[in-house]
């Protein structure tokens, strides 16, 4: 028998947010923070389309994310947050940066899927950036290959908290810093 090191983390204890209590107040929170729905822009930066289909299924009647006050919009200029899938291939690096620059402050970036979070199976490849975090400032990461629609909703809840945090604690420097990103 091996002896356990006292610092071994409990594997299950990492879910710090309880989804049910968060979800109860979620629509109210969207209203309170944004005074409208949360607008999401999806950017495919070289994904295999697995993650994209899970995002698309959020719009289907089965998951119906519009009932919660979330919607996918057609332009980054309308968006509060950017859902990036794929590990950011070389060709899409500039597109990803331009999309981010087109977003109004305080735009937040959500990395969806193993590829976007840390490169996934494409980690170390010559033609990808190895994850969105190497190109854009990522606020929320949703691992999974692909993540379940429920996991995406969980991530979007964390994203709303992050927007609230940014809106309340943003200062002038933050806004200037963003335009240089």
């Amino acid at each position: 028998m091996s002896t356990l090191h006292p610092l071994i983390p409990m594997l299950q204890s990492r879910q710090d947010e309880d989804a049910s209590t968060l979800g109860q107040k979620f629509s109210d929170q969207v209203q309170r923070v944004l005074q409208r729905s949360m607008q999401i822009r999806h950017l495919d930066a070289g994904s295999c389309n697995g993650c994209d289909w899970e995002i698309q299924s959020l719009l289907c009647p089965a998951y119906d994310m519009q009932r919660l006050g979330l919607d996918i919009v057609a332009s980054p200029r309308h968006a509060d947050c950017l859902l990036v899938t794929g590990s950011v291939t070389r060709h899409l690096e500039i597109a990803a940066i331009r999309t981010w620059e087109a977003m109004p402050a305080p735009g937040i970036v959500i990395a969806v899927g193993a590829c976007a979070c840390g490169g996934g199976v494409l980690q170390g490849s010559y033609c990808t950036a190895g994850g969105v975090k190497n190109v854009l400032p990522v606020d929320i990461s949703i691992p999974g290959c692909p993540p379940r629609p429920q996991a995406l909703l969980h991530g979007l809840m964390l994203a709303l908290d992050r927007i609230e945090q940014k809106l309340h604690h943003s200062n002038h420097e933050f806004r200037i810093g963003r335009s240089e990103a």
């Binding site: 090191h5 610092l7 983390p9 947010e17 990461s141 379940r148």
Partner: peptide, 19 residues
């Protein structure tokens, strides 16, 4: 477990040290 979304990328790493 599927609700794995995190804020800090470092939180996605689980490390266990054995003696």
């Amino acid at each position: 477990a599927f609700e794995l979304a995190v804020r800090q990328p470092d939180d996605m790493v689980t490390r266990a040290e054995f003696i």
